[in-house]
């Protein structure tokens, strides 16, 4: 039997060995990683090869490959999946002074298995003609009857909404969170949208007044059409009790795989990625904020104003993501 199976198997395989190079499994798209990798290879001579896919299939793949995996690094665009990878023991702890110094505590795993590399802030976007900034205060306030038929949201199937609700679960408790989410749902002016762009389109078209979006979607939209009557508002800045402790942020981040063949090389790359030069490039390319607090955001993003981030550790969002999803199902947020 094995005499037949082995050659068949060989037909499907190649050698996993990749001497001196790094292999990256990435849920961040090629256009947003290729220039970074190229810069690193130019500076250090270390070649990087990568594949991109959704997080779910990448995690399954890492798990199935086990010790045979060619991947040294897993790169994702949200903390929930990094938490899940870490939870499944597919990432290893990295004891690096450089990473700990460069990446703020709330943007990395308490167990040091993953590190946020760029910040994706999820904030309020509003119509400048129909809403005054003074009317806006917190995420929670959008659940009050004052916003009846004025709120547009993206689908609850998107991880950015899931991590926001998970953070509320952590900070405000399940009951209060469900109350807020139900309030949002009853304020929806239209069925939830498939993308952040559609949420902003709907606000511009007058279907609703406010919504929640990641800042870089807004950045891209007004870069193409600066005349659009929409603006960002950073909520939850007052540190009052009973509300999120700041603007909800998620990260695009990375960790070193448990079975990395080139562990030292992977750590060196992550350290390089967390430092000044790469930080400006990594976040800036997609109008995200650098995770390294000592690096100034680029001109466009800086123009939106500075804000206080929610300082609670993002690992908590991963831990409670499934709870958040179930809560949103119960509340009827499609």
């Amino acid at each position: 039997m094995s005499r037949v199976l082995l050659p068949l198997l060989l037909l499907l395989c190649s050698s996993a060995a990749y001497a001196e190079g790094l292999t990256v499994y990435s849920a961040r798209i090629e256009d947003l990683i290729q220039p970074i990798f190229k810069r690193y290879t130019d500076e250090t001579g270390v070649p990087i090869r990568f594949i991109t896919d959704k997080e779910g299939p990448l995690l399954q793949r890492l798990q199935a490959e086990g010790a045979s995996t060619p991947a040294d690094i897993l790169l994702t665009v949200d903390a929930g999946n990094l938490w899940q990878a870490s939870h499944l023991k597919m990432l290893q702890p990295i004891d690096s002074k450089v990473l700990q110094a460069n990446i703020p505590e709330h943007l990395r795993d308490p167990g040091n298995t993953w590190f946020g590399m760029s910040i994706r802030a999820r904030t309020i976007v509003y119509h400048t003609g129909r809403v005054k900034p003074a009317q806006l205060s917190t995420y929670e306030a959008l659940a009050t009857p004052a916003w009846k038929n004025k709120v547009c949201m993206r689908t609850s199937k998107k991880v950015y909404n899931q991590s926001l609700v998970a953070m509320m679960w952590v900070e405000l408790g399940a009951a209060r969170t469900e109350e807020i989410v139900r309030g949002w749902v009853s304020n929806f002016a239209a069925a939830p949208f498939a993308s952040d762009n559609e949420v902003m389109d709907a606000i511009v078209a007058g279907r609703c007044d406010v919504g929640l979006v990641n800042t870089y979607y807004y950045g891209r939209m007004v870069r193409d059409k600066p005349e659009l009557p929409i603006k960002l508002f950073f909520p939850n800045q007052s540190k009052a009790k009973g509300q999120l402790a700041g603007v909800h942020v998620n990260v695009s981040g990375a960790g070193v795989t448990t079975h990395a063949k080139n562990r030292d090389g992977a750590v060196k790359f992550l350290e390089w990625l967390s430092a000044r030069e790469a930080q400006a490039l990594f976040g800036g390319m997609n109008l995200e904020f650098p995770a390294n607090a000592s690096v100034a955001p680029d001109a466009i993003t800086a123009n939106w104003g500075s804000f206080r981030q929610d300082p609670i550790n993002l690992a908590e969002a991963g831990k409670h993501q499934a709870d958040a999803v179930k809560l949103m199902d119960r509340a009827g947020w499609k």
Partner: peptide, 27 residues
Amino acid sequence: AVGLFVPMAALVRHVNEALGWSLLLQG
């Protein structure tokens, strides 16, 4: 994709462990 890939990748892993090879299910 996962239903096909995962069992095959697991097989490759066992072959690698048994024979000391370093095959990658991706050729």
